[in-house]
Simulated assay, not measured.
Amino acid sequence: MLQKLKQFATAMKTRLVVLYLAVRDTRTPWYVRALGLGVVAYALSPIDLIPDFIPVIGWLDDLILVPIGLWLVDRMIPDQVRLECTERAAEVGPISASKTAGVIILVLWVAAAAWLVDFVMRRF
């Protein structure tokens, strides 16, 4: 069971790299790039919809949302781009979340939350 879980995690990391490379490819349609960027940002984000410190439920978003997002965007990527990105992903290896990327994602989350609060306050 543990071995299958490790294989699943490794496959998700590889698919995440493929998605990252496909998002950066100009042959990928803009809407696929936007959705793919959202999936990559969510997967690497230190902030989740459901915080990880909540037992079991906190991990379910990572175990359900990220694979569904990867699957959905993977189906939308042009076949030739997916094949080339899969080959390049084997060379690149796994993506590590840098501190700079974490800060940028955190700033984006704070900005989105501030906008939402402002929007709600103006409505009510």
Rank of each mutant, 00 (worst) to 15 (best):
M1F: 02
Q3C: 01
Q3R: 12
Q3G: 00
K6I: 05
Q7N: 05
Q7C: 00
F8C: 00
F8Y: 09
A9E: 08
A9Q: 06
T10V: 09
A11S: 11
A11D: 11
M12C: 04
K13N: 05
T14A: 13
R15W: 02
L16M: 12
V17K: 13
V17Y: 10
V18I: 15
L19D: 11
Y20E: 14
Y20D: 15
Y20I: 01
A22E: 09
V23P: 05
V23S: 00
R24K: 14
R24W: 04
R24C: 09
R27E: 15
T28D: 09
T28C: 13
P29R: 05
P29W: 11
W30V: 07
Y31V: 06
V32G: 03
V32K: 01
R33K: 14
A34D: 10
L35G: 03
L37W: 14
L37G: 14
V39C: 08
V39S: 09
V40G: 02
A41P: 01
A43R: 10
S45L: 12
P46L: 15
P46G: 15
P46V: 13
I47K: 10
I47Q: 08
I50T: 11
D52C: 05
F53C: 06
I54F: 10
I54W: 02
I54E: 02
I54P: 00
P55H: 13
P55F: 15
V56Q: 07
G58M: 05
G58P: 04
W59F: 11
L60N: 01
L60M: 12
D61W: 04
D61E: 08
L63N: 03
L65T: 09
V66N: 04
G69A: 08
L70P: 00
L70V: 04
R75I: 07
M76V: 02
M76P: 01
I77M: 12
I77D: 08
I77F: 13
Q80K: 11
V81Q: 06
R82K: 15
L83V: 14
C85Q: 07
T86Q: 08
T86K: 04
E87N: 04
A89C: 09
A90V: 04
G93Q: 11
G93D: 08
S96F: 09
S96I: 03
K99T: 10
T100Q: 12
T100E: 13
T100P: 01
G102V: 04
I104P: 03
L106T: 15
L106H: 04
L106R: 09
L108H: 01
A113V: 13
A113W: 15
W115A: 13
V117K: 03
D118Q: 04
F119R: 03
R122Q: 14
R123T: 07
F124L: 04
F124H: 05
F124P: 00
